[in-house]
Amino acid sequence: MFTTEANYKESFAKAVAHLSTQDMPVQWRIKAVDDLIEVYVRQVGEVPDGDQLERLTNYILRDSKNQPDKVSNTEYPVFSEWQQKHRSRREVPLEYVGGLPVEAKRVGIRLKHRHKQKRIA
């Protein structure tokens, strides 16, 4: 299937494109992608191209991108790096929430700035 004499990268790209068109449950997708990569590494002796690995990853995660409320619908949601940073900026420890005035809770004044003001004053 993937031999070093032939254009193995192009044939792997075609195999990835064909696999990406298949509609199957997530567990089967993971197994199919894993098997395809194992066959490639066994026959060629190197890891597939990063672009093809990204296409395979997107194929596995295809359904998870269309969940607008994945945090409340999933037990362990997967956040992107941007989502994790954004969430950590918005979260406030419960011990600090009781001391904030009602206006700060409504408007969303950042707690970090309140602490700086308290230290300066």
Rank of each mutant, 00 (worst) to 15 (best):
M1P: 07
M1K: 13
M1Q: 07
F2N: 00
F2G: 00
T3Q: 04
T4R: 12
N7D: 13
Y8F: 15
Y8V: 05
K9Q: 03
S11C: 06
S11E: 08
S11W: 04
A15V: 02
A15C: 13
V16Q: 00
A17D: 14
H18P: 00
L19W: 01
L19I: 08
S20L: 03
S20Q: 07
T21G: 04
T21K: 11
Q22W: 05
Q22R: 15
D23C: 14
D23F: 13
P25W: 07
V26A: 10
W28K: 14
W28F: 12
R29W: 02
K31P: 00
A32L: 06
A32R: 04
A32T: 04
V33D: 00
L36V: 03
I37Y: 01
I37K: 03
I37G: 00
E38D: 13
E38H: 15
E38L: 09
V39Q: 07
V41N: 06
V41I: 15
G45T: 02
G45N: 02
V47H: 06
P48V: 04
P48W: 02
L53W: 01
R55P: 00
R55L: 03
R55N: 06
R55Q: 07
L56S: 01
L56Y: 00
T57A: 09
T57P: 02
N58I: 04
L61Q: 15
D63F: 08
D63R: 08
D63W: 06
D63Y: 06
K65F: 05
K65H: 05
K65L: 08
K65D: 03
N66W: 08
Q67C: 07
V71G: 03
S72G: 09
N73P: 01
T74G: 03
E75V: 14
Y76T: 10
P77E: 09
V78R: 05
F79L: 13
F79D: 06
E81G: 04
W82H: 06
W82L: 09
Q83G: 07
Q83V: 03
Q84W: 10
Q84D: 08
K85M: 06
H86F: 11
S88T: 12
S88P: 04
R89V: 09
R89S: 14
R89H: 14
V92S: 05
V92N: 02
V92A: 05
L94D: 15
L94S: 14
E95T: 03
Y96D: 13
V97K: 05
G98H: 05
G99Y: 12
G99N: 13
L100S: 04
V102L: 11
V102H: 10
V102R: 09
E103A: 15
A104V: 14
A104F: 10
K105H: 14
K105A: 09
K105M: 12
R106S: 08
V107E: 07
V107G: 07
V107A: 05
G108W: 10
I109E: 00
R110T: 10
R110V: 12
R110P: 01
L111A: 03
K112M: 06
K112T: 12
H113C: 06
R114F: 09
R114Y: 12
K116C: 11
R119K: 12
A121K: 14
